[in-house]
Design a protein around this nucleic acid. Structure first.
Lengths: 210, 210
DNA sequence: ACCTGAACACCGTTCAAGT
DNA sequence: ACCTGAACACCGTTCAAGT
């Protein structure tokens, strides 16, 4: 992948993400991006390693938007803040979520929030294997939460009623628990649920340096 | 979708999952499944709602394999067991993971483990919004953990060394935290990490009925 | 009613040729 | 060295016709 000159990588990234935001994942193809930039499809291959590379480009563009405050003296608040920053970045581009869940990316921009998360967790006194597990747990919560909003059994579609309707249509005796939380979900919203879940995870991390 | 007769839905499911397991996600196409069954591509449309329906078929086949023991008198053990059952089912078909993360499915088989999880959590004394959040948190942990194994920064590829190599190649001063847990990951394995993470989540859920 | 081949409108990508 | 059109080998799916 030598460095060509007709476009910048940032230009590609922005155009690709814009296509996904506007027209969904199917709206992004080698051809659509090319015409958007005023070239032929083959030109894209000078900047990106095939379709996979194109999708990685989008993932990186989304994660680059993750933001979080400077570290404070409260590691729990810091963990919460970084996790929330990642979550918000992902949610801001719902059409791109499948890519983020699915495409591996290891560029520096994507790793920066991950590093910030490890650092915050390290300030709880953890290291080595304990630190690893803490990182895995918080990361899993964040991406899993975003995933559930996308396709989980309680995911909100265009209209909330549909979700509850689907669950309500289930055999009541077999799925009483799901019916109950589906009702609770109606009166709730992702923001408060994320915060409450995060509180549970942080409580789990508290006072267990090993 | 009326009920045709040439094949059973189970037959389709098994064949589709077998294709994915053997040849990856790209190995499953309308055409490949059709020839596998000895028909033309169009026949599949009598059983499944387009490509999306085909992928949902695979998701359901995987989740149908989730297993967990009968409820005990220890809700924490029960939550752990159901979560682990879901996790194991997903991990057993790594090629299908992107579909599971990405394709919405609401058939009864897929909802059964979810219901078992809610039930176990309800035995902690939670209900309503608290039960909802507990469910979301554990679910997020499970799917997020599976996702991380697939594409996370510490995901193990064919050879463990590569992962650590990638992280080790990063600027040390900017990514000291990731370097540390990458090293820890070398001496660890998914099983114990999942168990340890689960313990954190369960600790977080403990004694907080509201 | 269920099945299915032919044909269409797309893909990503190879290859070879441009400058 | 970088760029790019034409062509190829695939897709999923529409449509119309079979039984």
């Amino acid at each position: 992948m030598p460095a060509p000159r007709k476009f910048t990588r940032e230009r590609l990234q922005a155009a690709a993400l814009a296509l996904v935001d506007a027209a969904g994942l199917d709206g992004l193809t080698m051809r659509s991006l090319a015409t958007e930039l005023g070239t032929g499809p083959m030109t894209i291959y000078n900047y990106v390693d095939g379709r996979g590379g194109l999708e990685r480009l989008v993932t990186e563009a989304v994660m680059a938007e993750a933001a979080w405050p400077e570290p404070s003296d409260d590691w729990r608040a810091d963990v919460h803040a970084v996790a929330e920053g990642m979550w918000r970045a992902v949610r801001a581009h719902p059409h791109a979520i499948p890519l983020i869940l699915t495409r591996r990316s290891l560029d520096l921009t994507t790793l920066r929030p991950a590093e910030a998360l490890v650092q915050a967790l390290a300030r709880s006194g953890r290291s080595g294997a304990d630190l690893l597990v803490a990182f895995r747990t918080v990361s899993a919560f964040v991406t899993g939460f975003a995933q559930a909003e996308l396709v989980g059994p309680l995911s909100r579609d265009k209209d909330v009623t549909e979700t509850t309707g689907r669950i309500a249509a289930l055999p009541r005796d077999q799925f009483a628990g799901l019916a109950e939380i589906a009702t609770a979900a109606e009166a709730s919203d992702p923001e408060t649920e994320f915060a409450a879940g995060m509180r549970i995870v942080l409580h789990g991390l508290q006072g267990k340096t090993r």
